[in-house]
Design a protein around this nucleic acid. Sequence first.
DNA 1: TCCCCCGTGTAACAATTGTTACGACCTTCG
DNA 2: CGAAGGTCGTAACAATTGTTACACGGGGGA
Lengths: 209, 209
Amino acid sequence: MQEHIDAILKNTGLEPKLIDEIVTIGRLKKVSAGNVVISPDSPGNEMPIVLSGLLKVMRQDPDGNEVFLYYLEGGETCAMSITCCIEGRKASYKVMAEEDSTLWMIPMTYMDSWIKKYESFRRFVFGAYQTRFDELLMTIDSVVFHKMDERLYRYLLDTKQATGSYEIHKTHEQIANELNTSRVVISRLLKGLEREGKIEQHRNKIEIL
Amino acid sequence: MQEHIDAILKNTGLEPKLIDEIVTIGRLKKVSAGNVVISPDSPGNEMPIVLSGLLKVMRQDPDGNEVFLYYLEGGETCAMSITCCIEGRKASYKVMAEEDSTLWMIPMTYMDSWIKKYESFRRFVFGAYQTRFDELLMTIDSVVFHKMDERLYRYLLDTKQATGSYEIHKTHEQIANELNTSRVVISRLLKGLEREGKIEQHRNKIEIL
DNA sequence: TCCCCCGTGTAACAATTGTTACGACCTTCG
DNA sequence: CGAAGGTCGTAACAATTGTTACACGGGGGA
């Protein structure tokens, strides 16, 4: 286990001394697919780093509607939870396990001193911010500048890329929920994509071509 | 001038010693209304703090379409330019002066050392991130969960709040551009808001009631 | 003054998306 | 096996948004 964590963390560009600290101080957390990692009302005083698996970050509105924002893959961290914790605010989003995942949880107490001490940690944190800003902006692009069919196709490609598989195991209903539209609309548009030869459909499964 | 800058910076919660450094190292920049402050192809190795006036941040897509993201008011800074500069990347957004504004420009070279040195600067920077994340998420909410009429009304209220005036001096065409829709649609919806008694319209001017 | 440009109102129509309804099929479980 | 529930296809219609076209009036410049 220990070596496994080391291996992941090495790819983040963090310096060895810091990795030692992280390994000593953090704790392992396992989440199985479909479960919630962070929700708007959970306390949240730890910063998660994804060791394996895949998380997805969603935005929720007061009426319970949702939109998919982006995936968090191995080696990445949730930038939003950092600021949330620093400011002691409630999360305004929801993080779920898309696959069975293992996380390394670091208490927020250490954040400030690490930022002060380690140049590599500053780079890590600011890099995380940059990446998330970019993802949010891409989401805005997708929603503002494109129609639902393009948005859907981009979502499928994102999912293919994040899971590393050209097969997506989701129902039309689930996809509709992530794009905040209705099942009928998704079925209609997926049929269109199929006619264009971009995908192939099976029960509970979409194949990206 | 000197005292004016001090006064603004004091409200940011930065510690006196750091304010001294900022005042010594930065330079003043004046921008008149309508001019571009940061564009996707400008170099951008300075971090701006708004001293007076109002900036607006827009997202642009490759075809030249635009959307309004949020305003930057006095005492605030552009979080996205921080990460951009740290990573030496090109900006993926555009910042414009909504009113005649004065900015205090700080070379990025000092960022890292200040973050290391000043607790208050860390709080300032992370606070800026948090605020911008929230604004982006609100933009996403607005676009994903609401129809154009509500989006328009929220935009008017935001503008009222940012400018501190219940009169908005913009044409339907300009508003349409900021919401990435067409003039006709805005005229239609503004008429609706007027009928509901939420606004009053005049030439080149909208009054929020 | 007269003319032209700009800003706005409005109609008519097209395209996109949302909603409701229903039928077909598959899977699971009793 | 048969019933029940979940998944998908499709039609018909409503609501929202986008597009084109044209009329009206104000204000500024020649």
